[in-house]
């Protein structure tokens, strides 16, 4: 009897890869899917589910389905990738100094003069003059 290629294993693994790589380019763009990456967790769950069904049928019904070895390897890899994702989210994101040294409400904001993207010097006093308030957003940058 001809043994079928076990497509679920590969489909599941592909979804797991998508779950891993889609977070930064796609899901960080929206606060709802960024702050808690539930969309990626769902994708991991979906990929893992497909993979699990594929592996199960490879072992239950090896006469019809291939993929005992490939499925096992991909399943282990998927678990590792999921672990890497979770660790990245829960650990690496928090490796920033505490904010205890930051200036607090009520303190004067130190004046500054910095270059804008056109290379022009911009003074904080000018910015404040023209506005009711300014929001200073400090960000890590892309160096």
């Amino acid at each position: 009897m001809k043994r079928h290629r076990n497509i679920l294993i590969w489909a599941g693994f592909t979804v797991v890869i998508v779950a891993l790589v889609s977070y930064i380019p796609i899901f960080t763009l929206f606060p709802v899917t960024r702050d808690i990456p539930w969309a990626n967790y769902l994708l991991f769950l979906l990929g893992g589910g497909l993979l699990a069904v594929g592996v199960k049928r490879a072992f239950r019904d090896p006469e019809h389905y291939r993929g005992k070895i490939a499925g096992s390897i991909l399943a282990v890899l998927s678990v590792l990738l999921f672990g890497f994702f979770v660790v990245s989210i829960l650990y690496f994101g928090k490796q920033i100094p505490s904010g205890e040294r930051a200036l607090r409400p009520g303190q004067p904001a130190p004046p500054f003069v910095l270059q804008n993207i056109a290379g022009k010097q911009v003074a904080s006093s000018e910015l404040l003059k023209g506005h009711r308030a300014v929001v200073l957003v400090f960000y890590r940058g892309y160096w």
């Binding site: 904001a109 300014v134 957003v137």
Partner: peptide
Amino acid sequence: IARPAEFLV
């Protein structure tokens, strides 16, 4: 570099 932060002045 800067840590992420927002100040309203």
